[in-house]
């Protein structure tokens, strides 16, 4: 990996979310580009609230302190559409009124103006995940794994600078799961994206082979718990 500037990546600086005055969790983490931070926690521990806070969707009933910094830019008060943070949900959430191709075209930034170039990018993306020839299909006719792959490419085509994964593998059956998971992680690393993965499946965390953080209101917020102490450092 090439040397990255010190501020590269996604930084959660002293982030703490409270509901009705009661603290849900605290977290203080730095996710370098290409690295995956796995967030584990009981249901109700605030996993979704953390994702909502980072992506800019936290509802006003929650009070949050701390900052979200992406590649040195403070995003805490930036509206969600301008954050350039890609999001994958528990369900693939392909837009049911569009074809597979339209779903992908929808994500490509408008700066790419030429119709043929946009189309080419989308078709290439489909090809990359082994779905060449699916472009005109109705998303509803795809299998769960296929839908998740299209959703992944839709997220990446929007050229995000970070990736948030909200248990995107939970709806897949066991043998599909590992394939799709590896694909997501591989592409995230290839694009040098810092990744925040929320899951309650320890296997997802192990496969991510990065840092793991257990959301917990008593504990301090640092990313102290490492499965494998593999922090990216300056020395190569």
């Amino acid at each position: 990996m090439s040397a990255t500037p010190a501020h590269a990546g996604l930084v959660l600086e002293g982030v703490s979310v409270r509901l009705d005055g009661a603290p849900l969790f605290k977290i203080d983490c730095h996710i370098p580009p290409g690295q995956i931070l796995t967030i584990m926690g009981e249901s109700g521990s605030g996993k979704s609230s953390l994702l909502d806070f980072v992506a800019g969707f936290l509802r006003p009933v929650f009070e949050a302190t701390g900052r979200v910094i992406l590649n040195g830019e403070d995003l805490t008060h930036v509206p969600a559409p301008e954050r350039h943070i890609g999001l994958m949900f528990q369900s693939p959430l392909l837009f049911p009124h569009m074809s597979v191709l339209q779903n992908l075209l929808f994500a490509i930034p408008p700066a790419i103006k030429s119709r043929s170039e946009r189309r080419q990018l989308a078709l290439q993306a489909l090809d990359d995940v082994g779905l060449a020839g699916f472009s005109d299909r109705d998303p509803a006719t795809l299998s769960g794994g296929q839908q998740t792959r299209v959703a992944l490419m839709r997220t990446l085509l929007a050229e995000p600078k970070a990736l948030l994964l909200d248990e995107p593998f939970s709806s897949l059956d066991q043998n599909r799961r590992a394939d799709v998971r590896d694909l997501v992680f591989r592409l995230a690393r290839k694009n040098h994206l810092p990744v925040l993965l929320v899951t309650h499946d320890a296997e997802d965390g192990a496969a991510a082979s990065g840092m793991t953080h257990y959301l917990n209101k008593e504990q301090g917020g640092g990313c102290s718990t490492f499965k494998q102490p593999r922090v990216v450092s300056g020395d190569q």
Binding site: A55, G56, F89, F95, F106
Partner: peptide
């Protein structure tokens, strides 16, 4: 899922009104 579609639109960079209409 309607709330999630709003999030999907915003995380792809679409404005609030565009997300609603599209």
């Amino acid at each position: 899922h309607i709330r999630d579609y709003y999030k999907a639109g915003a995380s792809l960079g679409y404005g609030r009104m565009s997300t609603f209409f599209k």
